[in-house]
Each structure stands twice: as C-alpha cells, then as structure tokens.
Amino acid sequence: MTNSIQADVSPPLPQVQESLWFKIFGGKKALLIYALAPTIIFFTIFWIYPLGVGFLRSFTNWSPMSIHAPEYVGFANYERAFSDRMVGTAIVNSLRFAVTTVGLRLAIALPFAIMLNNLRRGRGCFRLIYFLPVVTSVIAAGVVWRFLYLPRNGILNTVLAGIRDLFGMNFDLPRYLQDPNLALLSVSVMSVWRWLGFAIVILMAGLSSIPTTFYEAARIDGANRFQVFRHITLPLLRPTLIFLLVTEVASEIQVFTEVFVMISRGSGGSIGGPANSTLTIVGLFYQTAFKNFEFGYASALALIIFVIISAFSLFQLWLGRRNWDY
C-alpha cells in the first residue's frame, strides 16, 4: 500500500528534467544546491558562525565593556564554571524545571487531546480556548500569575483561606513564590498553563493521523478503553510524543522570562531567589553576560547549556528510534 501511495504522489520529475531552465541551471545536483543554499547560508551566518565565535571567545576574558582586545585565558572560564557552585545549582534547577513542566504538561494535555478528539461538536472552540494562553504575552501572564500567588490578598490564598475557615481546618497558607520548595514549581505551573494549548493541538494532530480501522478492529476483538489506549493510541502517538518531548525539554531547560518576570524583583533585584531555588542556567548566563558583562565566561556557560540540551535531545531521539514491543 505504501508503495502504491508513493507511486501516486511522485512528482513529474521527468518533465522537469526535460525543461530548458533545468538544463541551463546545471541539472539535478545543482537544483539541490540551489534549494538548500538559503538554509545553508542562514544557518552559517546565524548559527554556525556565532557558535564558532562563542566557542573561541569562551577561552578569553572577553568583555564588551572594554576597548582592550580580549586575552586568551585557556580553560580558566571552564574551570571557574565547574568549580562555581551556582552553576551546579542552576543546572539542577533547570533540569528539575524542564522535567516537571514537560511531564505535567504532557500528562494533562494527552487526556484533554483525546477527549477533544472524540468531540463531535465544539472541538475548534475548545482548541481555541486552550490555545489562547500561547498567544498571550508572557510578561502580562507572568504579572497576573504573580498577583494570583501573593501570600496575602492573592486570589489563590484568599480562596484557600475561605475553604480553611469554612471547614474549620488549620494549615498555613502556601507562600508560592517565596518558599524555596514551592517557587520553581509555582513558575512551572504557570508555564504548564501557558503552553498546554500548544501540546493539545499537536497531540490532536497526532491522534487524527491514527487510522480508525485500528480502533474498529480492537473493538471487534473486545479490547476495553485502556487496552485501546495502551496498545494502539500510545504506540502510534509515539512520534508525536517524542517530537513534543524533544522540543519542549530543549525549550524548558532554557527557561528565563517566566522566572525573571515572576521572581527576580522579589529577591532584591537579583536573579534566582528565594535562596537560589529559581536560579536557572540561562538566568545565570543572563546575569553573567548582561549584568556583569563577562562575555568570555558567559560564552563558556552558553557552551555548557548547548552540550546539555544536545545530550538530552540525542537521548530522546534515540528513545524515539528504538524498537518497542507493545
């Protein structure tokens, strides 16, 4: 079946090859080069070149606030990074944030996507509602959530206090952004809410690509809902889930804006409070590069971030390519 589909949709290449323009511009190989050239040029200028410069400058004491040329310092910036306990804290926080946020988001998005996919009416409307936070300004959303989280007079704690008084319970109200055990999780919840719609839309696209014949066959065989989900939906949704995992983990490890908007001023203007519980690796990079203007050291941190994200992405891609038995 696959072969016949390919045969049906194959482009009329022979006709192209026969055209005059095709011959003038050098044939098939040249056409490939022309097609790829914009991408190659774009990536060379905006990705490979800055990466190369960043790599070289990570071995210098480069400061943009100086008329003096950067001096070669060997591995000093890397030695500093590996001996700086703040870097370790920032990496652990970033990984915790990424795992928590992506895990929570996918755990919520998947059942929502399945429910929406089964809806006969109003699917588009719900999809729009869930997608609205994605197109909301992160600054505006962050400020609103900061007010929701206020320990006194915040909406969440006002509701909690009402419940506590109503049922005569006795517990301390959470200090969402002030308690080091809750601060990162509180930001994570905001991030889950903000990007939930994106995950739902992608998962719905994945679900709609699963042929209905599989479900029909499973029902005839007497499979219950869980068995259908476990043996049909989940395996066939694996490429979509892997795509979301790779893109979202890579994105969430680089979290910065949400933390900056919701937390930074609350700890005396410095990044990462309370008690460094929200210090992320990109936050540390920002502080090093744009507050302390230590671009050489910041370049070393950027390279470390690059290696961590690459390692995660490769691991997830390997997971996606493995053969799984269901």
Binding site: G268, G269, P274
Partner: peptide, 21 residues
Amino acid sequence: PPDFESALAQITDLMFVAQTS
C-alpha cells in the same frame, strides 16, 4: 562589582523571603 550587591541581598532573602536560614 555589581554582583557584590546581589551577595548582600542573600542576607535578607534567606532570612525573610525564603525563611530558610
């Protein structure tokens, strides 16, 4: 250096904001 003031912020950040120290 600018991060010296961030180090000073740790005193009250840990005692009063985080309330962990």
